[in-house]
């Protein structure tokens, strides 16, 4: 067991530490689970179905109440904040489903991403368009008319409009073709290079771990393995149990 073998360093951007809790008054889904990501890093949460991957991410984002543990952003305790308040503190979140405004144009989607900003956000929008050039071409099209991969780009772009320090992605490649998946991962690496920390839940564990600086393997709401992406890929046990050999 390699639990907690990577203690969070000083530059840790976001950490959900020893989280225990579940939805509403329901049973606990997470048990003493720790997820952390450092500045400019990509952290990936993988695990079998029902392992609590998305739940762990939602816990970090404040969408369920924790009975124990805390969440810190940039050293500040944000455990008590609502998801909306966390967005204001610098967290961006891209849900797995329904993550765009389908009847609004691409540009309007991005504007809504910047809803809480009162300053001029045109520069940020330009950065998003540079990152996802196809969106610039389709800026006047309703987002609902775009292809699956393009919609995901809109969703990520929308979340980037607040200039977050951490971007959280819930299964961004679910339901897209392998080619589109590779492209999306490339973009995500690019986002990370701009200094934004990435925390992501992925079904496509192998491909995700390849780009991950840090990987968390969860089983039944508990940390099972935690290591660098490459180390996890190389670990025969992880390969056997979670990556299909």
């Amino acid at each position: 067991m390699s639990e907690h073998n990577l203690p969070p360093g000083d530059d840790v951007m976001l950490i959900g530490e020893a989280m225990t809790g579940g939805y509403g008054g329901g049973p606990d889904i997470l048990h003493d689970c720790t997820i952390a990501v450092s500045k400019g890093e990509i952290a990936v949460i993988v695990g079998p179905n029902g392992a609590g991957k998305s739940t762990a991410m939602k816990a970090v984002f404040g969408m369920l109440s924790l009975r124990q543990g805390q969440v810190r952003l940039n050293g500040q305790d944000i455990t008590a904040l609502s998801p909306q308040a966390r967005v204001r503190q610098g967290m961006g979140f891209v849900p797995q489903n329904n993550n765009i405004f389908p009847s609004m144009t691409v540009e309007e989607n991005l504007e809504m991403g910047a809803f809480i900003r009162d300053d001029d956000y045109r520069a940020t929008m330009d950065q998003v368009f540079t990152l996802f050039p196809i969106l610039r071409d389709k800026r006047r099209q309703p987002a609902g008319e775009l292809s699956g991969g393009q919609r995901q780009q809109v969703a990520v772009g929308r979340a980037l409009m607040t200039r977050p320090s951490v971007l959280m992605l819930d299964a961004p490649t679910a339901g897209v073709s392998p080619i589109v998946m590779d492209e999306l991962f490339d973009r995500i690496i690019e986002v990370a290079r701009t200094g934004i920390s990435i925390l992501m839940v992925e079904q496509n564990a192998r491909q995700a771990l390849e780009i991950a600086d840090k990987g968390y393997v969860l089983v039944q709401g508990r940390n099972r393995y935690t290591d660098t992406g490459q180390a996890l890929l190389a670990d025969p046990e992880v390969r056997k149990s979670f990556l299909g050999g």
């Binding site: 998801p83 909306q84 967005v87 204001r88 979140f93 849900p95 329904n98 993550n99 765009i100 405004f101 389908p102 009847s103 609004m104 309007e108 504007e111 809504m112 991403g113 809803f115 809480i116 929308r158």
Partner: peptide, 22 residues
Amino acid sequence: TKSGKSMRAYSDNEDLALLSGI
């Protein structure tokens, strides 16, 4: 207008509108 767009956003996708701070 920003308010009008926020109405359309809310109509389109309530959860995402909340998430966007509307």
